[in-house]
């Protein structure tokens, strides 16, 4: 029983981050409980119905929040049961975590600068960087794919569908 307990928690290596699923479930449940609790508080604060036979704007969300809080608590309990259970826990791994984190940053940057840069420059730059993050190093591929993609988007969205892109 001690061995599996030692296996719980985190393992950090440069190329992979691993965490026990029940532990991650507990972290996720804590976050969800906060979110659903705030949702419940806001739903309860919504104006009461003018018509007494209606449940008002907040009625359905309040019921929903209560059900979601219960379900989240049940997931948390099941995670605790799995931690103390003799059945080995499932592990969740994130491979190439630095690249994943970098790409998340890239996606956020793209969403911030998409309009300012313009569609085609934005697609060219970020497609190039995404390919690099995914491990592509062949110069022809890294340059060719973004160019073809930008051309495809221009032809389809600008010319064929007449979408007004920045």
């Amino acid at each position: 029983m001690e061995d599996y307990k030692k296996a719980l928690g985190w393992r950090l290596r440069w190329d992979v981050i691993r965490g026990a699923l029940p532990v991650l479930d507990l972290v996720g449940c804590a976050a969800l409980l906060v979110v659903f609790w705030r949702y419940f508080a806001q739903a309860a604060a919504l104006p009461a119905p003018l018509n007494k036979i209606d449940i008002g704007a907040g009625g359905f969300p309040t019921l929903l929040a209560l059900a979601a809080l219960l379900a989240t608590a049940a997931v948390a309990v099941s995670a605790i049961v799995r931690i103390v259970d003799p059945v080995p826990v499932t592990w969740v791994s994130i491979r190439r975590p630095l690249y994943v984190l970098g790409t998340v940053g890239l996606l956020i940057l793209q969403s911030l600068y998409f309009e300012r840069l313009g569609t085609l420059p934005s697609v060219l730059i970020f497609a190039f960087l995404t390919m690099l993050a995914c491990g592509e190093r062949r110069p022809l591929h890294v340059i060719g794919v973004p160019l073809v993609l930008a051309g495809f988007i221009y032809v389809v969205f600008n010319l064929a569908l007449d979408v007004n892109l920045p």
Partner: peptide
């Protein structure tokens, strides 16, 4: 795979923008 990732991401951004032509 890197080419697929770049293509999917590119279409996602253009598709999302084109849905309302706002950011």
């Amino acid at each position: 795979r890197p080419a697929i990732a770049a293509i999917v991401a590119g279409i996602c951004y253009v598709g999302a923008y084109a849905s309302h032509t706002t950011m």
